[in-house]
Nucleic acid binder design. Sequence first.
DNA 1: CGAATGTCAGCACTACTGAAATCG
DNA 2: CCGATTTCAGTATTGCTGACATTC
Lengths: 159, 159
Amino acid sequence: METDAELRFDRGDETPERLKRQIQRLMGMTGAQMGKVSGAALAAVGARRDHFVVLAVLAECGPSSQSQIADRARVYRSDLVAVLNELEGAAQIRRDPDPADKRRNVITLTDAGRERLAELDAVLEGVNERIMAPLSETERRELFRLLGRINAHLAADDG
Amino acid sequence: METDAELRFDRGDETPERLKRQIQRLMGMTGAQMGKVSGAALAAVGARRDHFVVLAVLAECGPSSQSQIADRARVYRSDLVAVLNELEGAAQIRRDPDPADKRRNVITLTDAGRERLAELDAVLEGVNERIMAPLSETERRELFRLLGRINAHLAADDG
DNA sequence: CGAATGTCAGCACTACTGAAATCG
DNA sequence: CCGATTTCAGTATTGCTGACATTC
């Protein structure tokens, strides 16, 4: 039998062509790696992605209810609760009952929250720069443009 | 207080600028959506991503040991076991002990496996086309090129 | 002995669902 | 009564780690 002879023992970049042609796979791998890098960078300062996203939404949209934040940050309402608990514990947000609608809370960014956002923003900007390092300025814009188009198309397709 | 007046009730695309500028976020969202689309397409024919990847590796690299497949398909050895069990159950692969090294199994693609791979390949090609629909041929090539560069850079950076 | 291989068990994290309590 | 909001509990999937027996 030729069992041993037919095994390929060589290492290196042996990724099959079939896999290389799959945009899903390339996007998935690259996206996952980006997620890891930025996740690790945020973890290094004791934060997670949701913290940044929620703070950013509050900074740009002003005081909001939790369901508004959930919609804009694309976080589930149920998961948002824990995030807000943590941010509130660090005094980066305030959670006050809305007198006009007693079902809601009004979430407000504090000064500490604004500082924290600036910190996280700087961290992620560093990550951004590191990720985009091999691309020129025009290439970066082009990448954004292409991804944006695909993303819009996918979002319109099935929600 | 102006609690109610400061709330923003308008819906639509309110994604904060800060978030739009994050390549990680755009890639993450787009990649996740691609993953969902292709995952759903594969689930519709009773398969998962790993099935396709493993079959593709076997088709292009020939009979291999499990750890070789794991390396090339970027699947963990531990997770590969279940995948191979399923493929073996459907008679799409054979798992024979390697007489030359009794620690190893030699995994071989069967004819049924080749047929299955062709089927999954067609399914994913459809997904690919659907995802890339809004882009022209040159734009698609450009996207691949840019992503490939970033991916190679990230992979070289930290493994 | 140390290293590789296949296997199993389990952990951590994220996305997601469901339901309850309160209120409009 | 129906619907929205906040909250808690739990599921499911996936990436990943650790341990173990066997064999080189």
